[in-house]
Design a protein around this nucleic acid. Sequence first.
DNA 1: TACTACATCTCGCAT
DNA 2: ATGCGAGGTGTAGTA
Lengths: 244, 244
Amino acid sequence: MDLSSFASLVSFVSTHNEFFVAFVHCRIRYSGRAEAELDWGDRMIVLKQDNALLIHQPVNGNPINYIKPGAHISVFREEGCVIIEGAHPQTNDVVLCEVSSVYDAMSRRLEDGRKQLLAGTEADMSDYIRDNPQVISSDFTPLSREEHTKYGFIDVFGHDKQGTLVIVECKRYAASLACVTQLRRYVEKMKELRGTDNVTGVLASPKITPNAQAMLSDWGFSWARVEPPKRLLINRHQKTLADW
Amino acid sequence: MDLSSFASLVSFVSTHNEFFVAFVHCRIRYSGRAEAELDWGDRMIVLKQDNALLIHQPVNGNPINYIKPGAHISVFREEGCVIIEGAHPQTNDVVLCEVSSVYDAMSRRLEDGRKQLLAGTEADMSDYIRDNPQVISSDFTPLSREEHTKYGFIDVFGHDKQGTLVIVECKRYAASLACVTQLRRYVEKMKELRGTDNVTGVLASPKITPNAQAMLSDWGFSWARVEPPKRLLINRHQKTLADW
DNA sequence: TACTACATCTCGCAT
DNA sequence: ATGCGAGGTGTAGTA
């Protein structure tokens, strides 16, 4: 595709909200929260229907450059190149992509109103703990879950049979030092605002790192092994698709 | 493009490491660290040269489904559809994408060995503070920076004229409660290992939230306003590109 | 709008 | 391989 046609197409899709993709040779500059530059190479440029701009190198999962949805797209036809500028009015990020060759490009209006259903999140874990409090301890009684309080956002809150308040923090992955300090912050805030020391914390996660376990013990908190529940089950060992 | 050609093309590019993009109508299932399903709709499927699989809806910056680089790609030609399976051997993630229509597709080998140069990171901030210690305080003397010690990863470490040890934690954005607890953890570990209470902390960032400032004060720590330095300057207000 | 915390976070580095 | 922390993190939820 010649550069002038490319320039026209980019202008068209950005104003008509079509999905656009191209393989190009380009170099890139970025300025905003940081400053970056990327020398000449082959990349994929994507312009989405909400004017998100993504530039991908041939490898790696993440875009090497991007502007979030809501970009203002400008196209400049220069001598021997086309410059695409994506500028985000809110974040003050600007990407300049100087394109010298266009290998291939395509655009189309895509229709998709679906949202993904997801299971196995931290919220699913706190649901599970509320319904199965014995996974925390035999005498744990939950009172609330997922509550935004002045103590912070507490995943599960309850008490034990001795009347000690118990704050449960859920993590869907191996709990680290940062998770322990988060829990500690909630417990301390609760102690301060209730004017009592009779508050403890439980970290619920599938795993915990040794340092995190040590810090947890130092603070008199405990760990409960809990797996994030996954309700939408696909048999992971079944490589064929007979039952779909 | 008909489904059989599509199936052949996907098989080809995944074994020959070409960059592949298609606009399709599909539904998706994911199983791995979580479970997800996404009903029929129009999407862009991307297969990169390192066998990263990305599926984008028409809007939003991030892929709605993905497998990280290194996926094993399988293609199944079924009655009325093609199923693309991306399975990652290390992470045990599996994405199944059932494609019923292919609107457009393109593939090509892209060549790009360039790496992006980036300025304005947290490491740049700690460099700047070491070279300009007065931004922390008039009597701060830096001793080391970016040190992986047994106390943790300390951005800048030094002392003041009274001999108090000072741990500086840099953040390139508005410092939050989590940043304060991170600093607090380093200070406490340092106190413990040095056997002294004569240790304090400084949070260096362009902004700080009110709650974080309050917690910082509670712990006797202080805040220094520091901007992340950006060396690769583009004039943000200059919308044309004369000087590039 | 600002603040908080999750995320299939991803990624790199060091142990 | 695991632990730890940064990221142009992005995104959702709430005040």
